[in-house]
């Protein structure tokens, strides 16, 4: 994290902002960020990466889950300026229409969503879960995905989708 602003590089930085370099979905960008801006608000309002959802802004629902250096976090609880140099993957970075990530395909095939609002968070969380390598059984997936709420109640289909992908990798 930078402690001083290089005036030559950041001459245009408004007072009170902190220059922060983030790699988001493979693209490195340096932004002048106000210290109180969360990663979630930066992604949604600053970068137009609206696939990351705001469901509570309090770390209670998981809709804002993204991967930071491969680990799943609630982006609403992370101030963006603390992530200087970090590698961030959002749902947009996992796959795109026409080039879906296996989890995205599995979610479609298992109808693992209804309204779709918690879905990017569920998928990012599931990828984080797979990265952790802890979950193998249905009970483990249910337990370790419990930070991601789905009010439409698609839970059993979500677990089916995640197990499908874990099974392929195992």
């Amino acid at each position: 994290m930078p402690t001083a602003v290089n005036s030559a590089t950041y001459a245009a930085v408004p007072i009170g902002t902190v220059p922060t370099t983030l790699t988001i979905n493979g693209e490195t960008r340096t932004r002048a960020i106000e210290p109180w801006t969360t990663l979630l608000d930066l992604l949604r309002e600053g970068e137009d990466l609206i696939g990351t959802k705001k469901g509570c802004d309090h770390g209670q629902c998981g809709a804002c889950t993204v991967l930071v250096d491969g680990r799943r976090i609630n982006s609403c609880l992370k101030l963006a300026v603390t992530l200087d140099g970090a590698n961030i993957t959002t749902i947009e970075g996992l796959g795109q229409p026409g080039d879906l990530h296996p989890l995205q395909s599995a979610f479609c095939d298992h109808d693992a969503f209804q309204c779709g609002y918690c879905t990017p968070g569920q998928i990012c969380s599931a990828q984080g879960l797979i990265n952790e390598g802890k979950a193998r059984t249905r009970d483990e997936v249910r337990e370790l995905m419990s930070g991601n709420l789905c009010r439409c109640g698609a839970y059993s289909n979500i677990v089916d989708a995640v197990l499908d992908v874990i099974g392929e990798k195992a």
Partner: peptide
């Protein structure tokens, strides 16, 4: 499969905000 599924799983579906 839900015909709006791809938009929802890729985060390209835009909601009110």
């Amino acid at each position: 499969n839900r015909v709006d599924g791809v938009e929802k799983v890729t985060g390209t579906a835009r909601y009110a905000a």
